[in-house]
Structures are given as C-alpha cells and as structure tokens.
Design a protein around this nucleic acid. Structure first.
Length: 108
DNA sequence: AACCTGACTTCGG
DNA sequence: TCCGAAGCCAGGT
C-alpha cells in the first residue's frame, strides 16, 4: 500500500508502484500512468522516472509507450530492445510498429 | 544556486 | 486539421 506520502517524491513513487502493477502482455501510456499517479499532465515526468528508476527499480519500463501506441525511444537507443521485449510478452506490432491500445492497453 | 533538459500530453488559435 | 505553447517533477551542468 502506498503510504500517505506528502514529500516531493510522491509522484515518483506512485509511478514506480503503478508500473510494477502493469500485467505482462499489456501496455500503458505515459499519460495514463501520470493520471493514475495523480498528475494528468505529468506524462513527461513518467519518462524521467523510467530513466532514473527504471532499471534501478527493475521496472517493466518496456510496457510504457506513448499515446499513439508507439515506442518513444529513438532507434538505436533501446527502441529495438523494447519492441523485442514486448513481442516476447505477446504484444503485437503492426507494420508501422504501432501497438493496438484498444487491445493491449491496460484497462486498469 | 539558477537554468536547461527529458522515453509526453493536452489545449487554444 | 495543423502548429505552437503550457504543464508536470527531478536531476544534471
């Protein structure tokens, strides 16, 4: 359970907690995570959190993509890796490398 | 200590 | 419908 944090890192902790709950084979958008964390406009901070605590907290950061259903990482900087991990979980990409959020989006 | 940047999203013109 | 600007939070320079 999330404690009654009121410190400045609330958002950060929320994001981590939420991403840890994303089920395998599902994806969420930055905005969705941000909204669940309490900041509908904090999508940008989600990216920051993944950069900072992603590997550190061992989060399934690959399940976080942008609202277009696409991977936001530049090719050569993790794009192929993220795509491969998602495909390995059963997520399908169309020929434009777009994920069907209606189908794979985390309804939670 | 101040300014800039970042794996984004949304609103207004 | 397309483009520009604002908003969010923390870390790095």
């Amino acid at each position: 359970m999330i404690k009654n944090e009121k410190g400045p890192s609330t958002f950060h902790r929320r994001v981590i907690a939420i991403i840890k709950r994303v089920p395998k084979g599902k994806v969420v958008t930055y905005g969705q995570v941000a909204a669940m964390a309490g900041s509908p406009r904090g999508a940008r901070q989600v990216s920051w959190t993944l950069h900072t605590a992603g590997a550190k907290e061992n989060l399934p950061w690959q399940r976080v993509i942008n609202r277009e259903g696409k991977i936001s990482i530049a090719k050569g900087d993790g794009y192929e890796l993220q795509k491969a991990m998602l495909i390995d979980e059963g997520v399908k990409f169309d020929r434009k490398d777009v994920v069907d959020l209606e189908k794979y989006g985390w309804g939670g």
